[in-house]
Amino acid sequence: MTATPIAVITGASSGIGAATARTLAAAGYRVVLTARRKDRIEALAAEITEAGHEATAYALDVTDRTAVDEFATAFRSLALLVNNAGGALGADPVASADPADWRQMYETNVIGTLNLTQALLPALTASGDGTIVILSSTAALSSYEGGGGYVAAKHGEHVLAETLRLEIVGTPVRVIEVAPGMVKTDEFATTRFRGDTEKAAKVYAGVDAPLTAEDVADTIGWAVTRPSHVNIDLLVVRPRAQASNTKVHRTL
């Protein structure tokens, strides 16, 4: 009897992470939900379980390497790791940005991804058919004013994905990067602007149908369920209203 494949999703307490957990559970994975907010992931795990799927919640800070290494001991074999934990802080120009914001973004987006990837790579390899997803952003591919720290962090993730793919070619592990453009979730812009809902709303003002968390989760679900010999190196997904990071059609 074939064992149910296990998928670890970081940053699963809300937004894209939570939507991805639901999508992968419905696709037949036993999902392991990680995030710092224990109550959120426990509620999501209960929801997924009630829907007839398998889910476990594990409170985890991806920047805490000791905690990550302890978490990794639970897995001898692992089918899928979705490195989703991350986020943006501030939108200040380089000349006046707070270095602490840049440091925090780098620690969460880049070092967090590095920590989980290093810790779980042996289990992914042992599975004989492992997949690593790195959720970057179109910010990883193109700069924009006010985005220096976030662009730098997401570019770091992009380079991590490219380099890892080169280094582990020939092993039974795929490295997939998904780079979303404008995604409207409950928390991303609000967190970036430190709870200022007015500023957060302006990001999406007049934009006809920005991406949703479910759109990105569907994209991830498609990429990881391709045949094992097919690697989606980089998948850029934007709403139709967005042509680039700086070119967005607004009906205002």
Rank of each mutant, 00 (worst) to 15 (best):
T56G: 14
M182P: 03
D196N: 11
R22W: 14
N84L: 06
K154P: 04
G17E: 08
I16F: 00
R226D: 02
V216S: 03
S77A: 07
R174V: 05
V159A: 14
T34L: 10
G17W: 02
E162G: 08
V237W: 03
V8S: 12
E107H: 07
L114K: 04
L78W: 14
S127I: 04
A201C: 13
S137M: 03
D186G: 09
A140L: 12
K184M: 08
A19N: 02
R76C: 11
T20W: 05
G221N: 14
T171F: 01
T225M: 10
L121V: 03
L24H: 02
V133N: 03
G146T: 13
A35K: 11
A139H: 01
T197L: 09
V8P: 06
L234I: 15
R192N: 08
A19H: 07
A85N: 02
A213Q: 01
I111K: 02
I176G: 10
I232Y: 02
I111Q: 03
R36Q: 12
H53Y: 13
T125K: 00
A209C: 00
T73Y: 08
V248I: 15
A19C: 14
S137F: 06
L33Y: 07
V183E: 02
A27D: 03
R30S: 12
E42A: 12
G206M: 11
R103G: 06
G181L: 11
H249D: 15
L252W: 15
Y144N: 00
A51F: 15
D129I: 02
S244K: 11
A100V: 04
T4E: 12
A200D: 01
E167K: 01
A97S: 04
N245P: 05
F193Q: 15
Q118W: 13
A72N: 03
D196W: 05
A74P: 11
T117D: 10
D233N: 14
R165D: 13
R174M: 06
L164Y: 05
I134P: 00
D129C: 05
S136I: 12
L166F: 15
G130M: 01
A27H: 06
T113P: 01
A26K: 12
H155S: 09
K184A: 00
T138F: 00
A95Y: 13
K199C: 12
P180Q: 09
I48T: 10
A126G: 14
I132C: 06
V31T: 09
A153E: 04
A7K: 08
I168R: 03
G170T: 07
I6N: 00
P99W: 06
E157A: 05
R240I: 05
W102P: 00
T125E: 04
L33A: 07
L114A: 12
A123M: 09
T246L: 07
T171G: 01
Q118R: 13
Y58K: 14
A119H: 09
D98K: 09
G170H: 06
T246P: 07
T191P: 08
Q118T: 05
T185Y: 02
R37Y: 15
N245G: 06
E167Q: 13
A35S: 15
G147D: 12
G170F: 05
R22Y: 13
K199M: 15
T113A: 11
S142P: 01
A126R: 09
E47T: 09
T191C: 08
T190I: 13
G15C: 00
